[in-house]
Write a protein that binds this DNA or RNA. Structure first.
Length: 556
RNA sequence: GCGCUCGUAGCUCAACUGGAUAGAGCAACGGCCUUCUAAGCCGUAGGUUACAGGUUCGAGUCCUGUCGGGCGUGCCA
């Protein structure tokens, strides 16, 4: 509908060009905005303000000429010229209620579009080291990443979720030594606790106990049985990684987050992909040797200094496998990749992109895209809880889900802009769990379901929607018709929190409506029309919450 | 020091590609259940959008500077 209106305004401008109001051809960027204030109509257009100078006439006068030049149409009821020169568009009544019919026929597809054209897109997120349980920071990544996948799919992209396991670095050695020390009956308090056993958390003891019991662990795509030999370091390492991967699987399951693919960093070495990438960089002349190390000329691609690729001790620095990994993503056909990561990784962006450009494989400069989320501060008892895996003080994601609930946790973590820090006060979340915004939205849905259950659906299968005349009804209709645009905007900007805001507004307006007007009245025709509106609201709440991975229960 | 990022009500956060009177929740105060779910609604109060300039018809939003927080800045991952 917006498109149709934009075309109408473009035609009006064209007409004014031919009658010489403008002395040049104007390629107008017609902007239509949803007005916040209902006195300002349904949509507002600022064309006259933007073009006043070029027409060398006052904006309000230009606005009048534009309105006069608009072709006849069935959409617009009237246009007011207001303020400095806004054209406030009031839509036809039947155009406003048409959205109900549309929602009820499209159901769960309402709001979805095909703008992504099925482009193969990958969202990589969480990607935690398999060295401990997931904490709330990973939770934010999981909530945002999963929601991004859902949003992209709603916008017509073929989105795949991927988890990258850093199972090949120094942190895995640390995990091995930590488990080994526990197997020997040591604790971090022991005077002879080894220095290279850096993980001090109690969960390492669980890993050691399980290893000693010769347990079998079934993680996502592997099955490992512990040898039980406390001196076999390789076996310990292998088992510990599997054990903790399984723990993370359970965390993700509890959070209702699914991945299409788990990628192991170690496979990049065993498949020779790291070597291949390095050889290619050397062959392309993008490297040099200095101080016994191999350097990449990242300054050619906007970095502020060159970076070491291969250390003097012969090992690669961490970003080298990252480059190889991203080359692999590209070769798998992901023309679009979005990496959802903690903001502490932002320095890798320049390096990974630089490495990819240096490979000279025709990868676009801005590829891959990044969505970075800021740290989550966890408060408990009025104090900040440090999320240090090494020190062992720890708030796990699963603790949080148990205490606060899955829907509330997900909603909370995804309802803020990712690039702003957020504070998660555990005491507050627990004590006010009934007042969490997610319940407000779910309650709106439950209320709608409850009312509808009181009318047989064939009683409102058809209805005269022109009976919807109250201001609350007009407000709701406007909000509903806005939903497809919100899905599109949130998808384009990769901002799931816009969906959360929309949910809150729709729920609030529905609660107001519910209190202001009876849905079921003496008048059967009116009841039918209102029931259709309620059914449409209910459907859109379901659709929107689904994009956030939050359920919409019928009863609360 | 340099780079990125954020600064909005007492607290936690919104504000669509720059739009009209900056909005919610929590906390505070006052009302609304004989009636479709009160996990709700209505109202009151709360703001120099950190500060100072600039750009323009118009700035919380863009630019410059200052102050403050976070992250990064390693031959750590």
């Amino acid at each position: 509908m917006k498109d149709q209106l934009q075309r109408l305004f473009q035609q009006a401008i064209d007409a004014l060009v031919t009658d010489n109001t403008f002395n040049e051809t104007i390629k107008a960027n017609v902007q239509l905005e949803r007005s916040k204030n209902s006195e300002h109509g349904d949509l507002a257009c600022n064309l006259a303000l933007m073009l006043a100078k070029k027409a060398s006439m006052p904006p309000r006068a230009l606005a009048e000429k534009i309105v006069q030049s608009l072709p006849d149409n069935a959409l617009i009821e009237k246009i007011d010229i207001a303020g400095p020169g806004f054209m406030n568009i009031f839509l036809n009544k039947s155009a406003a209620t048409a959205v109900i019919t549309q929602i009820l026929s499209e159901k769960e597809h309402f709001g979805r579009n095909h703008s992504g054209n099925g482009e193969l897109t990958q969202v990589e997120f969480v990607s935690a080291n398999p060295t401990g349980p997931l904490h709330i920071g990973h939770g934010r990544g999981a909530a945002v990443g999963d929601s991004l996948c859902r949003l992209l799919r709603a916008n017509g992209f073929d989105a795949k979720a991927e988890f990258y396991y850093n199972d090949a670095g120094a942190q895995i050695e640390t995990l091995m030594h930590s488990t080994h020390a526990r197997l020997q009956g040591l604790t971090p308090e022991s005077p002879n606790w080894p220095e290279n056993a850096g993980y001090l958390g109690e969960y390492i003891q669980d890993v050691a106990d399980s290893y000693k019991n010769k347990d079998t662990i079934n993680a996502k795509d592997i099955s490992v049985t512990a040898k039980g030999d406390p001196e076999d370091l390789e076996a310990i390492k292998h088992f510990a990684v599997a054990y903790l991967r399984h723990e993370q699987d359970l965390d993700l399951q509890a959070f209702d987050v699914e991945f299409d693919y788990f990628f192991l960093e170690s496979s990049l070495y065993t498949d020779g992909k790291v070597e291949q990438a390095v050889d290619q960089l050397i062959a392309n002349g993008k490297t040099y040797e200095k101080d016994n190390a191999l350097w990449l000329k990242t300054t050619d691609y906007g970095d502020d200094k060159d970076r070491v690729m291969k250390k003097a001790d012969g090992y690669f620095t961490y970003f080298v496998p990252d480059v190889a990994y991203h080359l692999d993503k590209w070769q798998r056909g992901f023309t679009r990749v979005i990496n959802e990561q903690g903001a502490d990784h932002h320095s890798t962006i320049t390096r990974v992109r630089a490495g990819l450009q240096a490979l000279d494989k025709g990868i676009p400069e801005g590829w891959p895209e990044y969505v970075l989320h800021q740290m989550v501060l966890v408060m408990k008892g009025g104090e900040e809880v440090k999320l240090s895996k090494r020190a062992g003080s720890y708030v796990t994601l699963r603790d949080l889900i148990d205490e606060v609930g899955r829907d509330a946790t997900r909603f909370f973590l995804v309802s803020r802009r990712p690039d702003a820090q957020l504070t998660f006060d555990i005491d507050l979340a627990k004590s006010q769990s009934n007042e969490n915004p997610v319940y407000y939205i779910q309650y709106a849905h439950a209320r709608a379901a409850s009312v509808l259950s009181k009318i047989e659906s064939d009683k409102y299968a058809s209805a005269d929607l022109s009976l919807l005349t109250t201001t609350e009804e007009a407000t709701l209709l406007k909000r509903l018709s806005q939903y497809p645009e919100v899905v599109r905007a949130a998808g384009e900007k990769l901002e799931p929190h816009q969906i959360a805001n929309y949910c809150r507004e729709l729920a609030g307006e529905f609660h107001s409506y519910y209190n202001a007007d009876k849905i079921i009245t003496e008048n059967d025709d009116l009841s039918a029309a209102r029931a259709q509106l309620v059914a449409a609201v209910k459907q859109v709440i379901i659709n929107a919450l689904d994009l956030l991975g939050v359920t919409a229960p019928d009863k609360m």
